[in-house]
C-alpha cells in the first residue's frame, strides 16, 4: 500500500503541508476562505528542533494500536487506510494515548480527526505531498 514517508533531510520546516492539509479537509473550495483568520486544524504536524524538522502524520500501521484502543469501534482499517467514523467517536482520548506517533488530535467539532490519506475528502491525492515544495514527504509504495 502507498504510504506517506518523510525525509527529514529535505524538510524545510515551512509548514506548507499543514496548510494544504487543513485546506483539503475543510471542505471549502477557496483556500483563503477556508483558512483566513482561523486556527488551522491540520492532520499533519511539523515537528521541529533546532535545524531539524519533519512532518508527522498517521503511519497507517499494519497493526494499528488506535483501532485496538478505540472503545467505540470508531476507528477501522479500510484496505489498509486507517479511517475514523467521527459520528461514533465519544471523545475518550484512548486513541491519543495509544498512538505512538501522536497522529490523532481533536478536531474543532470536538471529536477526533486523523489523516485518512485524503481518501475521504475531495483531493484524492494526499494534499500535503502536492503542497510540499521540496519532496520532503512522498507518497509511495515501499
Amino acid at each position: 500500500m502507498k504510504r506517506i514517508y518523510v525525509n527529514e533531510m529535505w524538510c524545510l520546516g515551512c509548514h506548507l503541508c499543514e496548510y494544504y492539509c487543513a485546506y483539503a479537509n475543510s471542505g471549502i473550495q477557496d483556500m483563503v476562505k477556508a483558512l483566513k483568520d482561523k486556527q488551522i486544524q491540520a492532520r499533519i504536524t511539523v515537528e521541529q528542533r533546532g535545524t531539524i524538522s519533519f512532518a508527522v502524520n498517521c503511519r497507517h500501521c499494519t497493526e494499528p494500536l488506535c483501532i485496538k484502543s478505540c472503545i467505540a469501534g470508531a476507528i477501522t482499517s479500510k484496505d489498509g487506510v486507517i479511517v475514523i467514523d467521527q459520528s461514533r467517536c465519544v471523545l475518550c482520548y484512548s486513541c491519543i494515548m495509544a498512538c505512538p506517533y501522536g497522529a490523532l488530535m481533536p478536531a474543532r467539532e470536538g471529536v477526533m480527526q486523523k489523516c485518512e490519506l485524503c481518501t475521504t475528502n475531495s483531493q484524492g491525492q494526499p494534499a500535503c505531498i502536492q503542497g510540499c515544495p521540496n519532496k520532503a514527504i512522498v507518497f509511495e509504495e515501499r
Partner: peptide, 11 residues
C-alpha cells in the same frame, strides 16, 4: 488573501 501562514517569513 494572506492567511498568515508565515511561510514567507520562514523562507
Amino acid at each position: 488573501r494572506c492567511i498568515a501562514c508565515r511561510v514567507c517569513e520562514r523562507q
